[in-house]
Nucleic acid binder design. Structure first.
Ligand SMILES: [Mn+2]
Ligand SMILES: [Mn+2]
Ligand SMILES: [Zn+2]
Ligand SMILES: [Zn+2]
Lengths: 144, 144
DNA sequence: TCGGTGCGTGAAAGTGAATTTCAAAGTTGT
DNA sequence: ACAACTTTGAAATTCACTTTCACGCACCGA
């Protein structure tokens, strides 16, 4: 149960005297249910069908809160939008962005541990996060 | 002479009927002379001392042009600003961002070729660019 | 060297994502 | 239920960046 996002968020809020509101709950459920790499304007219309009175500022605020609590990750792909994805217990992943069709493909990169280790060794840097972003043309687009 | 940024830009402009203006020349000189990872508002005051009439839209336009021509690279560090750096002939590099003092440290990562190769192999992706971004605490900040 | 064509410039206005403001409403511990 | 907070929603604001448009300037050909 420690890895349930709802539980993690509940604790995070409780620990600092913050509140579990209806809006936060609805936004969290939508966030868990809907796909990855979504930005506010992809959430907002969907949320409004369930809760028409919700304000867009609340959606911004909640997603940011989710990232702070550790259940979400902010992802930026250079299109000026901030996207979010659920942080899962599994292996970390990075993203391939197809410049032809816009598709985002996730990939795992073994060997990043080594890269990180060499950076620590060469620069005495304490790593908090590491992200790789590839741009190019996906196989789909290449073969058509 | 093929690797002189001024020469590359001159050609790029000539090839498409664009013009070498006083402003572009001044901005290019400043860009070459000043440090890396600068954003418009770091350039603008300096440029104005040499050319008080210059407009900020022109600075935005020129830096973007430099990136299009291949002599500059856009770099975004998630602070909402677009920064630029000269593209040099040497080895590619990536960035370490210190979350304590804000310093940007450049590093080279041997072994990226392998990572790229494995991605190509696993996903049939034609890579156009690859960027790594590390966040953490620099040695300077760790030791004080 | 002198136009003429058409790109470039600067000031100001506009854009769009994200944040802030503030009064009203909701949440929680007691 | 009460008091002490925090949160919300609508609207305003911020901020980087882009666009607009009238005028200026670069470049080419005669
Ligand atoms: Mn992802
Ligand atoms: Mn750099
Ligand atoms: Zn594609
Ligand atoms: Zn530091």
């Amino acid at each position: 149960m420690q890895h349930n996002p709802k539980e993690i968020l509940r604790r995070y809020l409780a620990e600092r005297g913050l509140k579990i509101t209806r809006q936060r709950y609805i936004i969290l459920e939508a966030f868990i249910e809907l796909g990855r790499h979504l930005h506010v304007d992809e959430f907002y219309p969907i949320l409004r069908t369930k809760y028409p009175k919700i304000g867009h500022a609340t959606v911004y605020r909640s997603l940011k809160l989710f990232a702070e609590s550790g259940i979400a990750r902010e992802v930026r792909f250079g299109d000026g939008l901030t996207r979010y994805e659920l942080v899962t217990d599994g292996v970390r992943h990075d993203h391939l962005l197809c410049t032809a069709c816009g598709t985002i493909t996730e990939f795992e990169s073994p060997g990043l541990g080594q890269l990180e280790a060499s950076i620590v060794q060469n620069h005495g840097f304490k790593v908090q996060s590491l992200q790789i972003e590839l741009r190019g043309v996906c196989s789909q687009c290449l073969s058509s």
